[in-house]
């Protein structure tokens, strides 16, 4: 038996704004610890990991581990119908994920479970020279600034500053932010702006974003709830100079 209840739909909704932009299908893995998913996009450019601990839910029951395969667009269509003060209940029957919104009315949606084409990828452990946190809004604004000039962004960090830079046909933009964190090395890599923008659709998950950057290494971007009961993490392959 699987049953999970949340006092509002916002964490699921904001997570799947990003997840449904990146992958077509996902497998939720549930056990007594909580609900997780790992997914790699078709182009193998972005990997994502969502971890929602059992303690995050108002009620959480999972007698035995389950694998719940769903189409992310179909799930997002249902989540978009939620109201921010609705209670959300997730459960399963034979062949369906059942999503119930309890507010003014009780609304029950079923999504057919699907066969997965691929087994979910296991997240790789990558050793980084840097890790630091910056405000989510600042990062999102920087990406929107860069969008004026280019489809790619150079992200770099040193002991003092985080920098985002882009150059285009008609000019360039340079953003600097004193991060105030303990970063001992310098690192810089270039990334697709479109791919970063997809991740930042999860704009209500966390007030801060933790970034790990290396030199021509993937970007790790992590959104964590203050309570540490939820994390949405992305890994993005860099663009490198030919």
């Amino acid at each position: 038996m699987f049953k999970a209840e949340l006092s509002n739909p916002n964490i699921l909704k904001t997570s799947f704004e990003a997840i449904s932009a990146i992958v077509d299908e996902i497998q939720f893995q549930t056990d007594s610890e909580g609900l997780r998913l790992d997914a790699l996009d078709r182009g193998h450019i972005t990997f994502l990991h969502l971890d929602l601990k059992a303690s995050l839910f108002d009620e959480y029951i999972c007698d035995e581990p389950e694998k719940i395969n769903i189409d992310t667009d179909e799930f997002m269509k249902v989540l978009k119908r939620s109201k921010s003060d609705d209670r959300v209940l997730l459960s399963l029957d034979e062949g369906n994920l059942i999503i119930t919104f309890e507010g003014q009315a009780k609304r029950t949606f079923k999504i057919r479970l699907i066969d997965m084409e691929y087994e979910p990828a296991t997240p790789p452990a990558i050793e980084y020279p840097t890790e630091f946190s910056i405000p989510f809004d600042l990062f999102k604004n920087s990406i929107n600034d860069i969008d004026i000039y280019s489809d790619k962004v150079s992200l770099s960090v040193d002991s003092e500053k985080f920098k985002a830079f882009a150059t285009g046909e008609f000019g360039e933009v340079n953003i600097e932010f004193i991060h105030g964190e303990s970063v001992k090395e310098e690192a810089s890599s270039v990334f697709s702006l479109e791919k970063i923008s997809e991740m930042l659709k999860a704009d209500k998950f966390s007030d801060n974003v933790t970034l790990s950057i290396g030199n021509d290494m993937p970007l790790t971007l992590s959104l964590k709830m203050i309570s540490e009961e939820g994390e949405l993490r992305f890994l993005l392959a860099p663009r490198i100079e030919n």
């Binding site: 450019i45 270039v190 392959a237 030919n242």
Partner: peptide
């Protein structure tokens, strides 16, 4: 010129 890389080398199994 820049080219988009993939994550394949990070997901290689031992």
């Amino acid at each position: 010129q820049y080219k988009q890389t993939t994550l394949d080398s990070y997901f290689k199994k031992d």
